[in-house]
């Protein structure tokens, strides 16, 4: 365990809190458990839950962009480390 540790000791970021939205939103049934308003014939119960899929995609994409660090294959200093 004396060798230098190259991985960060933590990947904490406030952006991760954003992921609470797609976990909680689809589970609050009073928000969407109704027939009207309809959209293209879909009751609100259905089109709102389809919409939540896009909320999930948007939030995970934002969190990914905001928390990503360069991969080791593309970061020059770590590339040398691998070659050692």
């Amino acid at each position: 365990m004396t060798e230098p540790v190259r991985s960060p000791r933590s990947d904490r970021s406030p952006w991760y809190w954003l992921l609470l939205i797609p976990v909680v939103l689809p589970l609050v049934t009073p928000l969407f458990n109704r027939d009207s308003p309809r959209l293209w014939g879909f009751p609100a119960f259905y089109w709102l839950q389809f919409l939540f899929i896009f909320v999930g995609v948007a939030t995970t994409s934002v969190v990914y962009q905001m928390t990503k660090r360069p991969t080791r294959a593309s970061a020059p200093e770590t590339r040398e480390a691998v070659d050692e």
């Binding site: 797609p22 689809p26 589970l27 939540f52 899929i53 999930g56 969190v63 990914y64």
Partner: peptide, 13 residues
């Protein structure tokens, strides 16, 4: 549907 929306943030974390 909610089941498969909720799962991905959990995978992510």
């Amino acid at each position: 549907v909610p089941y498969t929306v909720v799962i991905y943030p959990l995978f992510f974390l």
